[in-house]
Structures are given as C-alpha cells and as structure tokens.
C-alpha cells in the first residue's frame, strides 16, 4: 500500500524551513566580527553565547514572518505571539539540533561547534549546567518517541501559535491556525506511526516540558542580565524585557 499522505499544512511548513547552512554562515560571520574587535571590547564566552542566541532569534523572526497564517496577522499580533514564545523556539531549536546531532556527551551549537558536556559542567555555573542537562533529557525523550522532521515543523508552529497569548486582535485566526496544525499533527502521527497510539499526546506533553524549561532559561538569563553579564541593545534583551513590561 502507498505510504500515508503528509497533511498539506505540514508540507507547507516543511517548505518554509530556513536553510540551516545559510543561518549557520550568517551567525558564524557575526560572531567572528565580534571576536575581531579590540581586546577591551571582546565578549566573554557567555556574552558570545548570548550573541549567538540573539542572532538565532533573528532567523526565528524571519522564519515566523514567512509562516502561513502568521503573515496574515497585523504586526501587533505578530509581536505578541513572538514575545510569548521566543525562548521556547530557541530551546526547541536547540533540542532538535541535538536530536539530529545524536551524541549524548556533547552539544552541537548553531555555529556547527561541538561542546563537550564535561566542558559545560566545568565552566558553566550549576544553574546553566542543570538547564543543559534538562534539555538533554528532553532530547532523549523525543528520540525515544522517534520525532521526525514533519512533526518537528508542526510542533514549532504550535509553539508560535499558542492560545496562551492574550489581547490578540485576530484571535480567530490564531485559533484557526492552532486547530489546523493540531489536526495535521494528529492525522500525521496516526497515519505514519499507527503502532505508537499515544504519540500525538506524548508530543504535546513534551511541548509543555519545553515551555517549562524555557521559562527557567528566561529566569536564568534575566538574572545574568541584572548582573550585567548579558550584552544589551539587541533583540534578545528586548524579548527578555517584553514579558516583564
């Protein structure tokens, strides 16, 4: 029998995925420019990681702008959706990269660099180290669920179109987007993984864990920001403040 179809929504989202090599090249160039500055201006390792996250956020905003439904929203609604989920999208992007990387003892960065977990344990503080380990646990759990690219793009879309967002002008469109993506994910998992009866629900439970982890990551970043360790005047800082103002 022919393989089950891939729902139209997922096919469209697959086409909208950014070119990873292009994103990587842009971020590497940006960080090298940073490192080319005079010694007194040079960022710390943590500062560079923040810069990397900031640049990854730019590509996330570009991806969102190209997204079905999202591009029909007014800029006010677009901002509310992104301010709500930016840290989840960063965490989910990191987790999916580790899924593809497939090594438990090291972390693959968006720049293509590989960092040993032992180096993170030695250099990062206990909070950051705990966050990285929690992310690794989530990677293992998603690996055991055999999450594929089709499900990844659909889950990412569901993170963007969260119904938690209040005061939207066009709530109806956001609800429609959510319902279409949920239906597509249910249809896809049931059709392609009939032996994993509960996969759809399991995947949504993982999204809740991504949300919880991203909240902790935001708290950590805000604490580092208050101690002056996060470079300012960038998208990362603006998003960090957005929920607090």
């Amino acid at each position: 029998s022919s393989p089950p179809d891939i729902p139209e929504v997922i096919l469209k989202l697959l086409q909208l995925e950014p070119d990873e090599a292009q994103v990587k090249g842009r971020i590497v160039a940006c960080l090298q420019q940073e490192q080319g500055k005079g010694r007194h201006e040079r960022l710390s390792t943590f500062g560079l990681m923040c810069k990397m996250a900031d640049q990854t956020l730019f590509s996330i905003v570009e991806w969102a702008r190209s997204c079905i439904f999202f591009k029909e929203l007014e800029v006010g609604d677009q901002m509310k959706l992104l301010q709500n989920c930016w840290s989840e999208l960063l965490v989910f992007d990191h987790i999916y990269r580790q899924l593809q990387h497939g090594k438990e003892q090291s972390v693959l960065l968006v720049t293509g660099q590989e960092v040993d977990m032992s180096a993170i344990a030695a250099q990062a503080g206990s909070i950051l180290n705990t966050l990285v380990l929690r992310a690794q646990e989530l990677v293992l759990h998603l690996h055991s669920l055999q999450v594929d690219r089709q499900e990844f793009v659909c889950l990412k879309f569901l993170i963007l179109f969260s119904l938690d967002v209040k005061y939207l002008e066009n709530h109806a469109l956001v609800r429609e987007a959510q319902e279409k993506a949920n239906a597509a994910l249910l249809e896809y998992t049931a059709g392609h993984y009939p032996h994993c009866a509960d996969k759809f629900r399991q995947l949504l439970l993982r999204l809740a864990e991504v949300r919880a982890l991203s909240m902790q990551a935001e708290e950590y970043l805000y604490h580092k920001h208050l101690s002056g360790e996060v470079p300012c005047n960038n998208l990362l800082i603006e998003m960090l403040h957005a929920k607090r103002t």
Binding site: V61, R65, M79, L82, L235, E238, M239, A242
Partner: peptide, 18 residues
C-alpha cells in the same frame, strides 16, 4: 518619554528581502 523603537517591530515591518 519616547519609547525605545522596537527592534522586533522593525524586523517584522522590514521588506521581505531585507
């Protein structure tokens, strides 16, 4: 006090190929 121009808003309003 003039609000800081939002970088996110600028990005969202920029022309697609910017």
């Amino acid at each position: 006090e003039a609000e800081e121009p939002s970088l996110l808003k600028k990005l969202l309003l920029a022309p697609a190929n910017a």
